[in-house]
């Protein structure tokens, strides 16, 4: 019996020690990089905010931003995310109070390189500017957005993500 316990501990203890050391090393690395990673993520958000409302300043609300130009409220910005073809698509969306999209910018996506990744190109995202949220669907689904050839699923995903989130924010801000 004692022999058996000894044998099992002899196997288990080295593994436990390795796990503890690894855990400690990862905690240390996380602590070292945490601030930096947060800054990187925040910068991505700031960059996309400034592309959809040029020259505006932003006040953060619960789950959206209010864009103001010299004290006057001009619209709302919010993050819309959902599942695309290859993973999560995260977008920053700007919307005027009347329900018109001011602009869409992709924060992160992992679509198929060369096909789905073209949703991040201005040729595609510029289509959203000035469209009513009801119209943010692909043309074949009765909307006004042209899909990217060969990337219908990615194109449809982003229109759905933007429209659904925009409707929610529209209701919240009303």
């Amino acid at each position: 019996m004692r022999e058996e316990v000894k044998r099992i501990l002899g196997i288990a203890i080295p593994l436990i020690i390795i796990c503890i050391i690894s855990g400690a090393a990862l905690t240390a690395t996380y602590g070292l990089t945490e601030e930096r990673i947060e800054a990187v993520e925040q910068q991505k958000i700031n960059e996309s905010l400034s592309t959809i409302f040029l020259g505006a300043s932003f006040t953060e609300m619960d789950d959206y931003y209010i864009a103001t130009v010299s004290g006057e409220e001009i619209g709302y910005a919010f993050i819309a995310e959902g599942t695309g073809y290859g993973g999560t698509i995260r977008t920053m969306v700007g919307m005027y109070p009347n329900g018109t999209i001011s602009g869409v910018s992709i924060i992160s996506q992992s679509e198929t390189p060369g096909l789905g990744t073209r949703i991040a190109e201005p040729d595609f995202t510029n289509q959203f500017s000035g469209k009513r949220i009801e119209g943010v669907r692909l043309r074949r689904d009765g909307g006004v957005i042209d899909a990217i050839t060969g990337a219908t699923i990615s194109s449809r995903a982003i229109t759905d993500i933007v429209r659904e989130r925009a409707e929610v924010v529209m209701n919240e801000t009303r």
Partner: peptide
């Protein structure tokens, strides 16, 4: 020091730790 019976879990824990370190640094 690594017991042969659990060498694969030990290897994977060590490898995964280094990968996570690379991942965190590259993210930052």
């Amino acid at each position: 020091r690594i017991p042969p019976q659990v060498r694969i879990p030990c290897f994977i824990v060590i490898i995964a730790s280094f990968v996570t370190i690379v991942d965190l640094f590259m993210h930052g």
